[in-house]
């Protein structure tokens, strides 16, 4: 009982360490994409370890915690991907350190109408704001 509590605490603590590193990454990284990178990986493993620690301390909760871990593994990368994708589509500026952007080249070549549409919407929204 005592030992499982301590072992679970240690595992949970290591998980929260990864969460702390993830938060530090979000503060330190230069642009949105790199921030998402730091945030996604650290929160996934951090939360997994945190829940694993609880599972060690309280074995009767293992099935539900396992389910939680599975949901996190499947949903976390999807949400990060959607954030990054929408950020790129709305033309969020990338860090000056960025070496190359194949995606921007592709959308330029195709003369993507959706991108132009987005820009028009943004311009329209700005002019509306100006009128007020």
């Amino acid at each position: 009982m005592e030992i499982t509590m301590i072992a679970g605490g240690v595992v949970s603590l290591s998980g929260s360490l990864f969460l702390l590193l993830g938060a530090l990454g979000v503060v330190r990284m230069p642009d949105l994409f790199n921030r998402i990178q730091a945030g996604t990986k650290a929160t996934t493993l951090g939360t997994m370890l945190f829940l694993a620690g609880i599972a060690i301390a309280e074995p009767s909760w293992i099935p539900k915690l396992l389910l939680l871990i599975l949901f996190i593994i499947f949903t976390n990368p999807v949400s990060s991907h959607v954030l990054a994708r929408s950020a790129h589509h709305t033309g969020i500026r990338m860090s000056d350190k960025t070496v190359v952007d194949h995606l921007a080249k592709t959308t330029e070549q195709r003369g993507s109408e959706s991108l132009q549409g987005d820009e028009q919407e943004i311009a329209a929204a700005k002019s509306k704001g100006g009128e007020r």
Binding site: F18, L21, G22, M29, A38, K41, A42, M94, T98, V99
Partner: peptide, 24 residues
């Protein structure tokens, strides 16, 4: 996943922030 986290931890903690980002 474990390697990914150690990698991110190393980058975040090093003072020079060694990143070289690109979309490939």
């Amino acid at each position: 996943l474990l390697i990914a986290n150690l990698d991110v931890a190393r980058r975040v903690l090093s003072p020079s922030l060694p990143i070289n980002p690109a979309i490939v």
